[in-house]
Design a protein around this nucleic acid. Structure first.
Length: 161
DNA sequence: AGGATGATGAAG
DNA sequence: TTCATCATCCTA
């Protein structure tokens, strides 16, 4: 199953109050302190599993949250996991939905993107990328309005319509 | 506008 | 051991 990403958010590390790594190193966020190119998956609101890619440089605990995408392959499988209700374009619209559609749960937190069951592919660059404030981080003070959310403008697969 | 639903981290 | 807090989604 493949998703083409259309929306991501950057979480910059301990100095970023919205990043999980800002509250110190714990068993949950342990993968953030590891090498780049690994998954960090956590559960939010008791329901949704959110998928992050751990980034560099080095072992600085930064990560990128995968927020939305278009299912480009394996729609049958995605729909089996998401159920019959959502419109096709909404199968992976939103972090919880994307994790669910891809079948990525916390069991894959820490998995290596090079050798594990999940891979990150590089495609042709999008025609345009815009940046906006991140979603759901209003508590983060001045950092809440920084434009660390990256979207392909007007893409129908974004997390909100 | 609000409820679902449970792990996490900090406090007692 | 309890408690507040969530990087959300859906129905209404």
């Amino acid at each position: 199953m493949t998703v083409r990403l259309v929306e991501t958010e950057a979480y910059l590390g301990p100095e970023d109050p919205a990043a999980h790594s800002a509250r110190g190193r714990t068993a949950r966020n342990e993968p953030m302190w590891g090498p780049p190119g690994h998954l960090y998956v956590y559960r939010i609101y008791g329901i949704h599993d959110c998928v992050n890619v751990v980034c560099g440089p080095g072992t600085k605990p930064e990560a990128v949250l995968l927020r939305a995408g278009e299912v480009t392959e394996g729609e049958e499988l995605a729909r089996r996991r998401r159920g019959p209700k959502p419109a096709t374009a909404r199968l992976a619209a939103g972090p919880g939905n994307l994790g669910r559609a891809l079948g990525i749960g916390r069991d894959l937190s820490g998995a290596d993107l090079l050798t594990g069951p999940v891979s990150l592919l590089l495609g042709t660059p999008p025609p345009a990328v815009a940046s906006r404030p991140r979603i759901g981080v209003g508590y983060a003070g001045a950092w809440a309005t920084r434009p660390y959310r990256f979207v392909i403008p007007n893409d129908p697969h974004l997390s909100r319509r």
